[in-house]
Write a protein that binds this DNA or RNA. Structure first.
Lengths: 376, 376
DNA sequence: CTCCGAAATGTATGCGCATACACTCGCCGG
DNA sequence: CCGGCGAGTGTATGCGCATACATTTCGGAG
């Protein structure tokens, strides 16, 4: 790596001009076979790898698409990051006594979104660059990402509006998984509302449930809100009383949901009825995400409440853990891979036709009926 | 996006030269505050985002680090990819009758490696670009990735040797999770051997097991081989008979392991003893990865064999599912996040000092003792 | 053998930025 | 009053490549 060879080096070695070298790489059919061979030889001998930067500059297109995620780790630049542990011993033996399952990216399915995006990008020879909008330098980081790509897919809420607007003047932007919204961007959305509606329809129609409560999410989660609307839709359609607010609100974490469940259970047992649930546990609990449902399941099971016998429980998202719980959790599965794929697809068509009107792609959702709702 | 503004546009608007604009962005302290303000104003008004390509070209460094993964999806370019499903209905309701848990990237922990890499890169203002060495265009894709980055971390076996050598002439290369090897590259390795050794030591010393068998992996997996060596180390140290070969070989998938387990179980029951295990199930089965152990657990449980009562079972990797199985699986946890982090760290130090001798960082591993080995 | 058009190759330029170097200007000490 | 100095800014150049356009070569047809 004394100095990476350039087209000039290759051209000289092969005894041709740099244009020919470039052509051998980009439009091989325009070059005589013999010449091509010679050039390839030189490339191999020199270990030539074209500079992406120079290519991008000259071609006015980098061939890279960006994917911007929110900071799910909650890492703040102000907090000092622990320095990597580097123990001398290469093995540590510990007794794992259980406790909360460590949070992973995979819990939030960002990996799946990435995979979908990467797959779709690969099909058309694009590369994918990911960025996490995190820390104080967030704006700078996102800006730099935007400067390096031909198009940017952004997970909703990961980038402040003004910054997004700034960036959108340079590259096409696709917003993923945001609430239905009428801005200038292309959107990929998941049908939270219809998914919940279908799930609750099932509970009412097939299991005859009428006493249902909705466990909401954080106030600032549009997803949770959408799902609540779907819940209301179903209740309304069935002629049941439609609540104005969720019966309770979880923070979307399993641990938080456990606390919430314990409080609700206590209210229930002591008959204080201070909880929004009133004096008795409802027959069915529709949770706004899987983590919440799993937290409830933990507590209910521990308290000897039978699921689905005493209480029917459902989630939303379709995370892995819902397949491993006992009983397995009925949920609505989000098409995460598809989300990434669709985002890239939309970016591509946007690049192909910059003047087309902003589009919104609504991804279908799958309701997975399992044991926690009473299905065999 | 009629035409993205450039430094020239900003300079003109702000009434300064392009050099000043560049300085405002790169070395703000060299510019008078008043000028800075004016330039920032112009940037905001125009929606200017610096071109990464031009920056990279001029600065001779892109600020991007690459991460190259093998094609875990096994997608072959020859096979036609199914076109994305786009059903009209936005909801589909299906009864999930169980069946194999869908394979996900997360199973292979690539997401975790990525996260570690991204985190570490972020700390120093680098971006991360991921690439999957997949399909027939693999060489081209890897080459392009290499052309776009300042350094490349490659998961072992994801890139053919000659291609890697070619690339390494342009950018520093770090090989992740490969077998200890003495090539010119920097290496990050996980101590498979010592990890297995420690685990098996535990089985022998603390649980008094003497009849142990090793379920290996694919022939071409250096990891599986390393782990087998660790197994042998432990047996040898305990004065037990040391096998030359694993008792059986799994293909590292849960489904494959189930088939293997069924065959072994059948051999055992019918007394045919054609399996390498002989006429009886061993008292302890040390599996070369978690998927394999879980597959065995599925079959053993179904057959009424008690784990750990009748057979002790252990895995390797530390995937999520090992925390959810019943009993929970004793395993060796790989430091995947750390792997990514260390790779980036090593790349950085390599970039800082290109002439330093090739280094190998050995990452510590954690043996997690849970119920499947007989620990409470 | 000549001439013409197409194929093959070479020449020249610009992509957008960082930066070395030149330059201006205000200020200080002499 | 002059020379010098440093902060602040402008000018000019090159990074490595793609590509428009100019030029050469080649393969026939005449």
């Amino acid at each position: 790596m004394a100095k990476a060879p350039t087209v000039y080096d290759v051209a000289q070695r092969a005894g041709v001009s740099i244009a020919t070298v470039s052509r051998v790489l980009r439009r091989p059919d325009d070059v005589r076979e013999r010449t091509r061979t010679v050039v390839h030889e030189a490339i191999r001998e020199l270990g030539y790898v074209p500079s992406g930067a120079a290519r991008g500059l000259a071609a006015r297109s980098t061939g890279v698409l960006g994917l911007c995620f929110p900071d799910v780790d909650g890492i703040d630049e102000a907090a000092d990051l622990p320095d990597p542990v580097r123990v001398g011993e290469s093995v540590e033996v510990v007794r794992d006594v259980g406790g909360p399952v460590t949070a992973r990216w995979s819990n939030l399915y960002l990996g799946e979104v990435m995979r979908g995006a990467e797959l779709e990008a690969w099909r058309t020879g694009h590369a994918v660059m990911i960025g996490v909008a995190r820390g104080l330098r967030r704006a700078q980081a996102v800006n730099e990402l935007a400067g390096r790509v031909d198009g940017l897919a952004v997970l909703s809420k990961s980038v402040p509006d003004d910054l997004l607007a700034h960036i959108a003047r340079r590259v096409p932007v696709v917003v993923m998984a945001g609430p239905p919204q009428d801005d200038a961007y292309d959107h990929i959305s998941v049908d939270n509302r219809a998914g919940t509606r279908a799930l609750v329809d099932h509970l009412i129609a097939d299991h005859g449930l009428r006493d249902l409560a909705f466990v909401g999410g954080p106030f600032d989660s549009p997803d949770a809100h959408e799902r609540f609307l779907g819940f209301r839709d179903a209740l309304g359609a069935a002629g049941l009383e439609v609540p104005d607010e969720p019966a309770a609100r979880s923070d979307f974490t399993r641990a938080g949901a456990r606390d919430l469940a314990r409080r609700m259970l206590e209210d229930h047992v002591t008959g204080r009825g201070t909880g929004a649930t009133g004096h008795a546990l409802p027959r069915g609990l529709v949770c706004s995400n899987d983590q919440t449902a799993l937290g409830f399941l933990d507590v209910l099971t521990e308290a000897g409440v039978d699921v689905p016998g005493d209480v029917v429980l459902t989630g939303f998202d379709g995370i892995d853990a819902t397949q491993a719980s006992i009983p397995r959790l009925t949920t609505v599965c989000q098409p995460m891979v598809e989300l990434g794929r669709a985002a890239v697809e939309l970016l591509r068509s946007r690049l192909a036709d910059p003047s087309a009107p902003a589009a919104t792609v609504n991804l279908p959702v799958r309701v997975l009926l399992r044991e926690s709702c009473g299905c065999s």
